[in-house]
Design a protein around this nucleic acid. Structure first.
Lengths: 252, 252
DNA sequence: CGCTACTGCGTAGGACTTAAACAGTGAATC
DNA sequence: GATTCACTGTTTAAGTCCTACGCAGTAGCG
């Protein structure tokens, strides 16, 4: 199933994604292709969320049976991993472009955020290790490149990129979850969130939760319109970049 | 099912967790309690991961049947939400303590990281909105309080706390996933990760991925011992705190 | 002593993943 | 040209899972 005929130790489908492995030529012609399956799975995930992605559902999309897919994949896990890379592949990672490291790193983070906004289900798929798929590695490369002329140690460049991506990832997750809760008819969240401040005031005392009440009193949760926490992302990213800038200046 | 007899609009089990709702007195004595169920579910999650948590599995742990649990919970989702709060409740959120805002915020972040290290499955549970459970709110309160005397606007305090928690969350996720991959016998990751640098060199060319190769060449991935990315967390957190500090100084 | 709300649990239905077995196909080999 | 056999898609079935529904039993209240 998870053959390692070539010397990478990767599953066959991963090697296929890298173009390292050739399909055997014997036997009947294949009715499907890995790309087709991945694309269909992404379509399902876009339309119905990651929960809608089942082998049967994806196969139905292709007019095939669930078990057919196992000729191309060893497990559903493999499909999920390939879907992530497929999603990144559908986006154009802009070339490095002009500007200071700060501008370029900022653009990089914004690209990542927009990717998760477009494919929110990517964040629901467990990461099983460091990136090894083509488009993800290309994305990492772009991130590292923004710190090219900064004089940072290689180790620190990686850590800095990890910092930016960590912030962006869980920010996108939070923002996406809340947006989804707003849009869904889930009785709990949809009804609770619009009156969040009110609810908290009802459940907690000002004496025990002074800081929380101060934030609520300042009207922070009284947004007439939910903007996807755009402001908070901007805020966090600027702080992160300030922090990296401080380190760069210290090194120089 | 999801009654809102009291005026919070929350599910009954949530109100129970707040101590707002009383159980009816009629009928036979209850064989279980919500606390018991949550604790059992947490035990299962600790031992077998979030994937091991099924209604049947949790019930078996208690010597009950799967359907019994639905007398206490409206859905599995509710159980999951309660588990998160239960996990935070099992930890002692240290009192604010002494020190500058920076030291206290750092301690706060370290506490959060340690929570996710102890209960990694928490990060696998989808967040359905802003925090509304008791222990989570207490945790948020502690975070906001660290920024007490800084002169930041309330809005900015929340954004800053959100920044720290966002970084910590996805960092814990990444670190936990990779640790799990190292410890698991999952053929893909367990075999691939120790030779990550080697693998990347095999799959990519130096011409196309110069920045990535530079990092690998610097020996960044040659850790003899995997330390859970402790160093990278420290790095990221310091940058974040530097960034917040810069803002505070600018305001003053 | 009913009444009635409440209890736990058995059954069953409709998901899901995937192991195993099957028959058809067609390139490689003799 | 005949044969071999690796490879194909599919069917069947086993083992999960969540939870709607309904039943029989229990205990506080009038």
């Amino acid at each position: 199933m998870s053959g390692d005929d070539t010397e990478t130790g990767l599953p066959a489908s991963f090697e296929l994604a890298w173009g390292v492995r050739d399909r055997p030529t014997k036997g009947p012609k294949r009715g499907l292709s890995l790309e087709q399956i991945i694309e269909a799975a992404i379509d399902v995930a876009n339309a119905e969320g990651i929960g809608g992605v089942s082998m049967g559902r994806v196969a139905r999309e292709l007019g095939a049976s669930a078990m057919s897919l196992y000729r191309y994949l060893a497990s559903k896990e493999e499909l999920l991993a390939l879907m992530i890379d497929g999603a990144f592949g559908q986006l154009d990672v802009a070339e490095d472009g002009e500007g200071s490291w700060r501008v370029r790193l900022e653009r990089w983070a914004e690209f990542e955020l927009s990717a998760y906004r477009r494919f929110p289900w990517v964040l629901r798929i467990p990461v099983t290790g460091a990136p090894i798929m083509p488009h993800q590695l290309r994305f990492l490369e772009r991130g590292l490149r923004t710190l090219g002329g900064t004089g940072l140690a290689e180790q620190d460049k990686l850590s800095a990129v990890l910092l930016v991506t960590s912030f962006t990832r869980s920010f996108a997750m939070l923002s996406g979850d809340i947006t989804a809760a707003f849009e869904s008819d889930d009785p709990t969240t949809a009804r609770v969130m619009p009156r969040y401040g009110e609810l908290i005031r009802k459940l907690t005392t000002r004496a025990e939760y002074p800081a929380l009440h101060a934030v609520i009193d300042a009207g922070t949760f009284d947004d007439e319109e939910f903007d996807g926490l755009e402001h908070d992302f901007r805020f966090g990213l600027e702080r992160v970049l300030d922090g990296i800038e401080a380190l760069i200046n210290r090194r120089a």
